[in-house]
Design a protein around this nucleic acid. Structure first.
Lengths: 244, 244
DNA sequence: GCCGGGCATTGATTTGAATCAAGCGCGTGT
DNA sequence: ACACGCGCTTGATTCAAATCAATGCCCGGC
């Protein structure tokens, strides 16, 4: 009872300068485009922050004061309708950016799935620094274009795929993501709960669960336990995902 | 029979230099960020193209050789699944960009809804010009961030809204778009067919039609004819769209 | 003016996923 | 060790939207 609600969510806050060279996500994050000198300048405006599991990093509608780079853990981006219906817009993995998509206010909320570490940049200072770091601006444009492509793929999923195809697509992408992080096994760790998967795929917990069961029955996957999936038939999964 | 299939779709192609000052979308397109001198440099690499109704401007999977700016008419962006199911990712209005979202290839196809005019830029030349026109690069980043926000809003629609809410959201946005173009009436012209609306909203032609009928019965809209809607209760429409 | 075809609307029926409702398994804290 | 609770799975039922099927309307060609 001695810790306040705030200290529950924000565990540590340290200046960032000098730590970048050692950063876990140095090679895949936005800052990968920078040489050591420019990295120094970026690091000068950055602060490292940590949040506990389930903490809210920012809220839909908030003034967008910061842009973040996720260094450890997983984040979900959510939008919520008046009556409580929730849609998960995306999951963010280590190396990903938060807070890029903005029309005057954050368009979605960001919540830590497990404990996370972030690199935080004051938006105005980062934006003005962009004029002096053109390679970073280019990189952000590339990142935004990639995210736009991902969003469009998700619209196809939500608008036109069956629940079976949605789950297969989800697992396929989780596998691709694991590869991108250097993990080339067919074993997938799901950091999020069934409710998160359901809200991401535009369906329900029950349907997600039944679909996992069906994929297992059909021999496409094995469920080591609820949050660990082994892919047995990667090609079959991809075919399902593409609606073949 | 004397005209080939190609000349059916590509009617005219003229150099663009010098025409920008007179451009219809000068004030709202990406080039709005440029002064006259920089505009000259951009115009030097642009070509004006026209396409007939239903023509394909580029195809999902094509090498992304060009970036386009729509000057007249309307475009739909589509993705298609193996078995023919189609999702419309977005509609583009005069002043909008085509071909920004790319992972090595166009991620969707672009099709003219009616006759269209476009300003076409060779992608490599535009990208290298960006290094000399930082304000344009910033503008493109802003546009990409806006489109990302729109895409996220659409994910909420596709994942969690009812057909009634989807159609209400669609009409509300069409109205907002009309305002952006300086048209402040409550009368909306729909350039696209019911099939396009259905594929955009992740539903069917029949459901779209029934929903229009219901909105009319409930006194929220009037249907002047199939492609002309008069909004009678803008607030009611917005409430529906937000799920209240 | 009349015919034909494309597009929209309306109606009847089916179906697949949401909802409602138990159970189960596992980790946590007492 | 035990009980509690949370998260996942499984089963039964409902229901909304997709599908199937006609009909109507408007425009363009003959």
């Amino acid at each position: 009872m001695q810790t306040s609600a705030q200290s529950m969510s924000t565990i540590r806050l340290v200046p960032r300068a000098g730590l970048c060279q050692a950063c876990q996500v140095r090679g895949i994050a936005a800052c990968a485009s920078l040489d050591d000198g420019d990295l120094q300048r970026l690091a000068a405006i950055a602060t490292q922050k940590e949040y506990a599991a389930e903490a809210t990093i920012f809220e839909q509608g908030d003034e967008p004061s910061f842009i973040y780079n996720l260094t450890e853990g997983h984040v979900r981006l959510t939008k919520t309708l008046a009556n409580g219906r929730r849609q998960i817009i995306g999951f963010v993995y280590p190396g990903g950016m938060l807070g890029l998509a903005v029309h005057g206010a954050y368009v979605c909320s960001a919540e830590a799935i497990g404990p996370v570490k972030l690199c935080r940049f004051p938006r105005p200072r980062l934006l003005s620094l962009l004029d002096e770091l053109p390679s970073l601006k280019t990189r952000l444009l590339d990142i935004a274009a990639d995210e736009l492509g991902d969003a469009q793929e998700q619209m196809l999923l939500l608008g036109r795929k069956t629940p079976l195809e949605r789950v297969a697509s989800f697992l396929w992408r989780q596998h691709q993501e694991a590869i991108r992080c250097g993990d080339s096994t067919l074993s997938i760790d799901l950091p999020m709960k069934r409710a998160d998967i359901a809200d991401y795929l535009g369906t329900t917990i029950e349907t997600v669960s039944r679909t996992f069961t069906k994929l297992r029955a059909d021999g496409l996957i094995k469920l080591e336990h609820a949050n660990k999936v082994i892919i047995l038939d990667l090609d079959g999964l991809e075919e399902l995902a593409e609606g073949l």
